[in-house]
Design a protein around this nucleic acid. Sequence first.
DNA 1: ACATTAAGCTGTA
DNA 2: TACAGCTTAATGT
Length: 219
Amino acid sequence: MRHEGLCVSLVPLFNHLEIEDQQKIHSLVTHRKVEKGEQIFAPDGDAQLVIVARGSLKVYQLSTNGKEQLLRVVEPGGYEGESQLFGVPNETLFGEALEKTEVCVLKQTDFSELLLQYPAISVKLLEINAGKMATIQQQTQFLMMERVEERLAVYLLDLAKATGSSQVSIPMKMKELAAFMGTTPETISRKLKLLESKGFIKREKRNILIIEEEQLEEI
DNA sequence: ACATTAAGCTGTA
DNA sequence: TACAGCTTAATGT
């Protein structure tokens, strides 16, 4: 087991501050350990900022037919609920632990005061949220594409562009990739196999070598 | 074209 | 052994 660290010092939002400042923030948060499958927040709950220290947390809403629609997965260092700071109430979002997870909860009023007291946090918040926006943009870009095959091709090409190599490694479980692309693990498995049979890629587990970049772009 | 269901396969605690 | 994660095949929408 690892040391029971200040989860404040683990997250990019706060860990750039002086130790004594971090300790002050730590005195404002409530540490909470949750088991896999446990709810962390739900609609109409208290306005709060939830920071993931360990494990992972899925954020989803319920669609009209009552089925769960996954929006994003928050990894250690990430947070959820910042929009509530700006008066946007949570009417639809659920948060649930994907595994044994530790989170820090900061009340909205306390966090607002921190933002005023430490302008550096406000800057960090904007910085990190800009990154969030980028992934959300890509998310909607995927949903506009009709076929899964196309989303997968774009995803692989983006990975290659980001790493600057034609040899890419999928940075998550296939199940999560499926959710990320708005489909099922089965379909992901089939489409990867299809692309490999066409000779566009070569795959070994999560490592994928892009062979025919031209052909992938045409999809 | 994709989801769902069920079954088998592999690595790991 | 038991279980999680992934794949494959059959069938449904």
